[in-house]
Computed example of a mutant assay.
Amino acid sequence: MAPILEIRNLYKSFGSVDVLKNINVSIDPGDFVVLVGPSGCGKSTLLNCIAGLEPITRGTIEIAGEDMTDVPARDRDIAMVFQSYALYPTMSVAQNITFGMRVRGIDRETREKKLAEVARLLKIEPLLDRRPKQLSGGQRQRVAMGRALVREPKLFLFDEPLSNLDAKLRVEMRAEIRRLHQRLSTTIVYVTHDQIEAMTLATKIAVMKAGEVHQIGKPKEIYERPVNMFVADFIGSPSMNLFPARATRVDGHTRLEVSRSGGAPLVLKDPRQFDLPSQVVVGLRPEDIAEANLRSGPFVQTGTCRIDFIEQSGSDTYVLTKLGGVDVFGRFHTETHVEEGMEIDFAFDLAKVLFFHPETEVLLN
């Protein structure tokens, strides 16, 4: 299957500042690719380069096998949904959705047919005669999506489309967008700074930082095998625990020694042998640190830790302790009785452990 979008060696500079550096991304038809990263990492700039709204400094952009590097935005066969919705305030919903088709000279019968299909799909039939100011934020976003959908382009581009909505509506719209993608098998490139949005929507995630793509892959792959400490820390809520340890090989296993405030070091023994430097950063997700009485197995190690802070989240209780001088979260069952200041046996599931180099921050195992 030939890629629908191929970006090769793309650079974008503003003056002497490179805001995008050697971007290489390949997207297959039907993919839902989410560009995610902190504010200022270049994800919206990359989207604008794909759309043709920003010229690139060097590199190539191909859409459906055709070189679009220097092709104007109007000729790229893409549709874009913006954070601000960008609706015409004096036009009705129906006029907003069909405006682009009217400009391109598409006949009235076809316009009305497309409008009816999209309105039914997005459940906005009762809104077609209203003006944008009469709509809620979620309704405006549906209209903006409808305007893109009637185009039937090769590529849909979404630039933080849900960031203006409240938390409950964001969840609802995420589900709506996911259902639309599954039903229509459209190809989407979607920008967000919200990593939960990325995990729930994407077939592939591209994690960006400072103008570079650090990792691209399936959500599960990114979550379980982050290539470096930045990706490990950025993806997941709460994020992966990262704490320093001293590593040695003893009698066929790997011994990890982690400092604890006010007590002897915590010692964890992994039955596997790893070729590690003496100082490492240990990565464990909160769900891999739990109550000792609820976990068992050859990779589970226990140790007594002091609970410094408790955070209730309904179905789970997150407990915080300090290891190696940094805060470490474990995920306990909500029925487990814990109090701040208690010392309790924690279970560490080393089957899921990752090791990172403390200086280069890259994954070692």
Rank of each mutant, 00 (worst) to 15 (best):
D70F: 11
P126Q: 11
Y190W: 14
S92C: 03
L323K: 00
E339L: 14
E343H: 15
I106T: 14
N164I: 11
A290N: 07
Q182E: 15
K204W: 02
G40Q: 04
L121T: 11
P286Y: 04
S313L: 13
H333M: 09
I23M: 08
E339D: 13
E54K: 12
R306W: 02
E197A: 08
E117G: 03
R142C: 08
N293G: 11
G325A: 11
D31Y: 00
T200C: 11
E287N: 09
R183E: 10
M208D: 05
N164P: 05
V103S: 02
H181P: 03
C49Q: 03
Y318F: 15
E221L: 10
D75H: 08
E197Y: 05
D251I: 06
A64T: 07
I97W: 00
S296E: 14
V250E: 15
V227P: 01
I344C: 12
V189C: 04
G217T: 04
K43H: 08
R151C: 07
H253F: 13
I289Y: 02
V17I: 15
N365I: 09
R178D: 14
F234Y: 12
P219V: 06
Y318R: 11
L320V: 12
R183A: 11
I7E: 02
I56L: 15
N164S: 10
A64P: 07
G15F: 13
A247R: 04
Q134L: 09
L20H: 10
F156S: 00
H214K: 15
A148E: 04
M240A: 03
D67M: 06
R104L: 14
L242F: 08
L180D: 02
T200M: 09
I78M: 04
P89N: 05
K113G: 06
V191G: 02
N48A: 08
Y223C: 06
L256T: 02
A210N: 14
L242T: 10
H357W: 11
S84M: 07
T203D: 00
A245R: 07
K168M: 13
S136I: 12
R130I: 11
I23L: 06
Q215H: 08
T321G: 10
A210G: 09
E287K: 11
L149I: 15
S163R: 05
Y318A: 01
N228R: 08
R331P: 04
Q215M: 15
K322G: 08
K21V: 12
A292W: 07
R179P: 10
Q301S: 06
I50T: 01
I310R: 10
E221G: 04
T203H: 00
R272G: 06
R131L: 13
M173T: 06
D107M: 11
T69A: 09
L10I: 13
V150C: 07
N22E: 10
Y85R: 04
L115D: 00
I23C: 11
R272H: 09
V328A: 08
V300Y: 05
K209P: 03
H337W: 09
F243G: 07
L323H: 03
L284G: 02
D70A: 13
E291I: 06
F356H: 01
L180T: 04
L266E: 06
P55I: 05
A292Y: 10
G263R: 08
E62F: 14
S315I: 14
G30W: 00
F234G: 01
K352V: 00
L157C: 03
N22C: 08
M101I: 09
A73H: 07
A64K: 10
F82C: 05
L276W: 07
E291W: 06
I188Q: 00
